[in-house]
């Protein structure tokens, strides 16, 4: 079971969390100004990378807060977690970069 480091509560087991999809996708300030294609891109297109992935998690059965995490989709390792208003840590972060 994964151990996820909630930036507000500390490390907690995976079952306390819900997944929230790709991070850093702000809802457009004026959706009406977008073309159908642009809106579809916001609504449906996601990166789905192999490797480092910035994603949203919610500590649903804890503090209830949303936060962001960098996870390696190959190893399933959490490289970092950070608050929604923080910028993602640099790519040098995490055990794999250190190795």
């Amino acid at each position: 079971m994964l151990l996820i480091d909630c930036p507000y509560c500390g490390p907690r087991p995976e079952i306390e969390f819900t997944y929230g999809g790709e991070a850093h996708r702000a809802r457009p300030a004026d959706p009406a100004a977008l073309s159908d294609e642009e809106w579809a891109g916001y609504l449906y297109l996601r990166r789905n990378p192999k490797g480092r992935h910035a994603e949203r998690w919610r500590h649903a059965h804890g503090c209830g807060r949303f936060f962001n995490a960098l996870r390696d989709t190959v190893s399933d390792a959490f490289l970092a977690t950070y608050r929604v208003n923080e910028t993602p840590p640099p790519p040098t972060i995490g055990p794999e970069a250190a190795a």
Partner: peptide
């Protein structure tokens, strides 16, 4: 409730 929290915390803080 979860969707309300989502919008309040992440889109319209």
């Amino acid at each position: 409730l979860a969707m309300m929290e989502d919008y309040l915390q992440t889109e319209w803080p």
